[in-house]
Write a protein that binds this DNA or RNA. Structure first.
Lengths: 151, 151
DNA sequence: CTTGACCTTCCCATCATTGGAAGGACTAAA
DNA sequence: TTTAGTCCTTCCAATGATGGGAAGGTCAAG
């Protein structure tokens, strides 16, 4: 099976398959004489596992751990559970941060007439000198907005 | 006031102030003879407005619009409200996506013994051939995970 | 033998932010 | 006045996961 077919069968784009190979998430495949990558059903199964993990928001690093646990028949289920729960913690923090933003904005928008006049509580809040959200400090890098999931 | 002081006073890092200037979010400042950027209290006020907007998860592009509305005494509050509500919509979608991930994972983790034995429903789910989450497809680029807010 | 669909590698862009290097400017103390 | 230390400058790179696209090789069908 070529990379395109493996992509279709797994739901992981050919681009990403090559990327995952380049970073070592999946092993280098066999190649045809012409240099084409060749995939087995087993490889597709692994790719699907990876896609599922991405859909649940796991990072590539976590996925690497999950894949290796998956392939380890001696694994302890607590190791898997720990990764999952750790991720849940992160997800919940992000959810709370987003909810705080949304509720603040919803509140401000509710108090904004939304007409042709210039008076606007939203701008007033953004421009106010007070602390506003107080100590609200999302985790720096890749904290709240932006990429939440793949695909 | 130098850039470092403006950074402290506004809560926007010196790095980001230079960046915002480079992309045109804020105008180029006056410079001293030696090339140092000089900031006024008014500039700091604008920077604080920007930081607040970032804290609420607005993109730089949206912030540019907000700043220009802020500085426009003829603005219509409905234009501001539209930006805010549009953003709320996006936030709420992300929240739903994250909640879906979290609840799926929590459910799976609940059914996982989390002991030294290898049996693990989490891995089983990730490895299963069924659709699993069905048509769950977060918006591609910067969909759900990752950067949710600045700072 | 040509056409079109596929594959290869390589580089670039995204988004906001941080880090660091190399070098100049300024300030306070010796 | 020299020196140390802190600030400033610009420029380049990395982050994380992904897509876009160019330039060129391969393959199957007509």
């Amino acid at each position: 099976m070529n990379i395109g077919q493996a992509a279709q069968a797994s739901g992981v784009s050919a681009k990403m398959i090559r990327y995952y190979e380049s970073i070592g998430l999946i092993p280098k495949t066999v190649r045809t004489e012409a240099g084409y990558r060749v995939y087995s059903d087993h490889d597709v199964h692994t790719l699907r596992f990876i896609r599922r993990s991405r859909d649940l928001g796991f990072s590539v690093e976590q996925i690497a751990d999950l894949v290796s646990l998956w392939q380890d028949r001696e694994r302890a289920s607590k190791d898997v559970k720990a990764i999952a729960l750790e991720h849940v913690t992160v997800l919940e923090r992000k959810i709370r941060e987003l909810q705080e933003m949304a509720s603040t904005l919803t509140h401000l928008a509710t108090n904004c007439h939304g007409d042709a006049r210039p008076h606007c509580p939203i701008l007033e809040e953004l421009a106010s000198d007070e602390a506003g959200q107080g100590d609200f400090k999302p985790d720096a890098k890749f904290g709240l907005l932006g990429k939440v999931s793949a695909r």
